[in-house]
Write a protein that binds this DNA or RNA. Sequence first.
RNA 1: GCCGGGAUGGUGAAACAGGUAGACGCACGGGACUCAAAAUCCCGCGGGGGCAACCCCAUGGGGGUUCGAUUCCCCCUCCCGGCACCA
Length: 840
Amino acid sequence: MTSKYEPKKIETKWQRYWAEHQTFRVTEDPSKAKYYCLEMFPYPSGRIHMGHVRNYAIGDVVARYKKTRGYNVLHPMGWDAFGLPAENAAIDKGVHPVVWTYDNIAYMRDQLRKMGLSYDWDREVTTCDPAYYKWNQWFFLKMYEKGLAYKRRSSVNWCNSCETVLANEQVIDGQCWRCSSVVDQKELEQWFFKITEYAEELLAGCDRLTGWPERVLIMQRNWIGKSAGVEVDFPLAAGDGAIRIFTTRPDTLFGATFMSLAPEHPLVESLIRGTEAEAAVRALVERVKHQDRVIRTAEDVEKEGVCTGRYAINPLTQKKIPVWVANFVLMEYGTGAIMAVPAHDQRDFEFAKKYHLPMRVVIQNREETLSEGTMTAAYTDEGPLVNSGLFSGVPSPEAIEKIAGYIEQEGLGKRTVNYKIRDWGVSRQRYWGTPIPIIYCDRCGVVPVPEDALPVVLPRDVAFTGKGGSPLHQVQGFVKAHCPSCGGEARRETDTMDTFVDSSWYFLRYGSPKTDHLPFDKQAVSYWMNVDQYIGGIEHAVLHLLYARFFTKVIRDLGLIAVNEPFANLLTQGMVIKDGAKMSKSKGNVVDPDYLIGTYGADTARLFSLFAAPPEKDLDWSDRGVEGAFRFLSRVYRKVADLAPCLNPQLNLKVRGIHQYRNRLDEIGAGLPEDLKRLRKVVHQTIKKVSENIEVFHFNTAISFIMEMVNNIYLVPHEGRAGDEGFLYVMKESLDSLILLLSPFAPHITEEMWEMMGYESSVTGVPWPIYCTEIAQEEERLIVIQINGKVRSKITVPAGTPEEEIRRRALSDERITGLLGGKPPRKVFVVQEKLVNIVV
RNA sequence: GCCGGGAUGGUGAAACAGGUAGACGCACGGGACUCAAAAUCCCGCGGGGGCAACCCCAUGGGGGUUCGAUUCCCCCUCCCGGCACCA
C-alpha cells in the first residue's frame, strides 16, 4: 500500500509547482471583481512564531476561498523592516542592520513559503529599501508643504546612559528597558505630524467602519477623546490679563472657588516673580518637571499644590478666587489651567480638603440636601442649580447649554471642542529608520530636501557603539550638506522617522510595488483599494490602525487616491496561548513553527490553528490536538488513495469535472440504495454549511463539518461495489467535493489528492463546489415533543407537514398519551417543523 | 476607578431572530484486526439514581420575564484586555 500520507514530499512538490506556474500572480483586471486580502506584515525579527502562523493561515483561507469564488484576489506580503532590534543586533553582535535584516527576511520568506501561503511574491515590499522609504520622505515633504509636518520643542524620555530617546513603551517603571538607569525628561526639537487636524474626521469615520470590531472602534474613539465645552477667561484681580480655562461643565461655573495652573503654564513665571510665593512655587514646578511622565501620571501620586498668592475674578460671581499651581493639571490638555469646583469635581474636592480651600454647592441633590460642611465627596450627578444667580433652579443638563450661551453672549468666552489625541511625534534619534529629508542652513533656516534629490539614503558605513546618541550624528559625509536654497554649507537632519510611518501606507504600495515616479500607480491602486479584509493582532488597535487611517486621509487630500478609509473589514485574531500563558521565550512555552512543519507538515499546522478556536478568540495550543489534525488529514488521504484507483478507470472520468458527471448522477439519483442516497445528502448539506461558515469566518466549525462528512464517507461499505455505477459516482462526487472544501485550509494535500483523482490542473483554479438545494433538503423532520418544557418524546414527520397535523400527531403519540393520562392539555405550542410543547 | 470582552463536560469547543445543551476534536474506556504491539476501523463517553423502561440535576452564583432561557432583563463573584488625574 502506498497510501501513507507523507506531507514533506507532497508539500515541497506543490510549493515548487505553484512557484513554477506563478499560480498566485495577479494583475489588475477591470472585467473581474477584485478582492484585496491583507494580513499585517511582520517585523523581520529572525523567525516566524505561532502568532504569524495563525494570522497567515486565516488570511490564506480567505484569499484562497475568494479565488475559488471567482474574485481577482490580491494577496501580498512584505516586511516591516526598520526598527530597533536591528540596531541592537549591530551593537551587541557587530552585524550591520542591513545584513541582519536581509538575512532575517530571507529566512522568514522561506518559512512563509513552506507554509504554502498564496502570496503574489512579485509584489513583496520591504520598507528599509530606499525605493520604498524614498516615498516616506516624499510624503513628509508633502505634509511639510501643507503644514501637516512641523517642528517644535517637546519633552521626551531620555536615557543618559544610552544617550538616546526612548519611546513611552520602552520606559519600564521609570527606568530604561535596556540599561535600567533612571529615565529623564528632556526638551528636544521634534518633528510632528498634525494628526489632530484630522481628529474630527477620524472620529466621525468610526461610525462608518461597520466592518470593524466594535471594541477597536471604542478604543479609537476613546483615544481621540473628543469633549465639547467652553473656554472662559478669568481676569486677574490685579494687573492686566486673564487666565483662560477649558471646562465641560459650565453649569458649575458659579461654584469655582479657586483656580489651578499646570506647573508648565506660561503664566506661572510672571505671576510669582518677586512675590513671597516665588520660592515655594518654583520648588514645586522644578520637582514636577523632573518627574517622568510614567511616575507623574501614576495612580497613587498625591495631589499637591502651592498657592501663588495671586487672585483672579470668577466672571460669573465676580468674586476674588486664589490661583494655585497644582501637579495634577496637565499642560497638554485644554488650556493648561482649570477652574476648580470642589463641590462637584472629585479631584478639586480632594485638593480643597487638603489645603482648606472654600467650597460652594451649586447643584443640589434632590434626594438629600448637600451642604459644604458635611460633604465627604464631590457631587457629580445632575440636579437643579442653586447659588447660581439667574440660573438658580435650572436643571443642570439644561444649564450647561444656557450658561455656555450666556458666556458667549457676554463675551466672556466661547464654546470649543477638545481632543485627547496629540500630534504624532515622529522624530527618532536612531539609525535604522527613514532619514527625515530636512536640511538646516544658518542663513535660510529649515529647508526641505528638494523632491528630485530623494531619496536621502541612509549611509551604510556607520559605527554602532550604543553610545553618543544617533550614529548618524557622527557621519560627516551624511551630516554635511549644501543648502538647497542658497548653496551654502548646511547640516542635514540626523533624526529618522518613527517606523509606524512605514506601515501607514504599505498597503497602497502593494498595488504597484515597482512604480518609481510616484509612491504608487494611481490607476492600479484605485482598482485594488480598499483592502476588503485586513487581519492582524488586536495590539495595533490604536497605534498602527489609527496612523494608517490618518495617512490614507492625507494621501486622499493629496489627490492620489479616492478612498476615505484603508480597511473595509477588520479581523483581530486572538493570541496563541500555551499552558495558560501567551507564548514567549521567557516563559519557555514556545512552539517552533519549523519543528511543527518539519514533523507534521504545513497543512497540519494550518488546519490545527484554524480548527482549535474561532479566529478572534485566544487559541490554546495542544500538541495532542495537532496530532489529531494530522490524523484527520491522513484519514482523508487514505480514503482517496484507496478509492481513486478504482474510480478513475471505471468511470473514464479523467479530466471531466464535478459538474459534468453530476448530470448522470442526477439521472440515477432516485434509484440509489439508501446508504448512497444518505451520503449524497450529507455531501450537499456539507457544501452548504462549509460555505456559509467560511463566509462568516467560522473556520473551526467549517472544518468540523468536513470531518463529519469524512466520517460519513467511511461508514459506507465498499466491498464488492467496484462495478456499481451508482456507488462509483456517489463516491466520486463525495471525494471531489471533500477535496475542494478542504483546499483553502490544507492546500498541499488537496492538490495531491486532486491529482490522484485524475485531474490534470491545479485545484486552485477549480470553482468552489455548488450544492443542490433539493438534494440537501431533509425530507423528514424530527419533532421534539415536550410536556411543560421537558423533552418527553420525539417523532419524525415528512417535511412540509402542516402545523395542525403535527399537533395532532404529537398529542396522539403513545408516550405522550401515557404521560398525560387523559388530562386535557391547557395549551399547546407548535414551532413549525421543530417542536411541540404541551402545557398541562 | 472607567470602558470593553469572557466564564458551557476531564479538556479545546458547538449550539444564541429563545425551542432536543455539549456537534466536531482531544483525553479516556470497550470491541475488531494482530503471535503481540503500534497504526487502523467500529462503538461508548456531563453528573447522580435505577435490574430496566426511565427519572432527577446541570451552561460562574442569585433573582426575574416566558409555555420554554446557555441565549433576553436586573444584581453579584471571578478572569482577561484597553484607558487611566483629559478638567
